[in-house]
Design a protein around this nucleic acid. Sequence first.
DNA 1: TGCCAGGCCCTCTTTAGGGCCTT
Length: 203
Amino acid sequence: MSKADTVIVLDFETTGISPGMGDRAIEIGAVRIENGEVTDRFQELMNPGRRISGFIEDYTGISNRMLQSAPPCGEVMQRFSDFIGDNNLVAHNASFDQRFLDAELALISKKRSGQFTCSMLAARRLYQEAPNHKLGSLVRYMNIPSDGTFHRALYDSEMTAKLWLAMLGSIGDRYAVPAVSFSLMRKLTRTPKRSVSQLFERS
DNA sequence: TGCCAGGCCCTCTTTAGGGCCTT
């Protein structure tokens, strides 16, 4: 597997759903996958400079007290920018995490250079019969061991990484593709569902 | 306190609407 197939699987916890409406990141978690294995991890809380809602406290288990002593977003995002480097990126419903990553990096005058792809869009194509395509549901559907601690950034990124590797395995088993590259997975997320077989038969 | 967005994707579609996902 080439360096291009080293990927960072990441997950943000945030104050809400829209950076365009002023929402900020409160936690970033990520794992690095190299040669099909997790080789490094990143997790930090960050202080968004405001109180978070009771809904977000309940949803994530991250409290205002925990964030009081956390470093500011800019400081954490500097370190995270170094962590991701120029690697390609994966997230579950990546359009969400991409918006927050780009918004937080813009606030410290940085940009990412890696490309994003989305585990949810890939799973919708590979596991069309799954009950739904929420991260927790797919983890159960694929019988990936889990203690159910969802909605914390590192845990969700670990589970997304395991789902990602399971999808690479499914493609290998189902279509006899020996090495599934990041760029092939990216093509998968842009392929109509009815054409998935043809994509892999051409590979 | 409660609310917000946006891309994907399906269908009773394309001159649109609504569910799925993420926090």
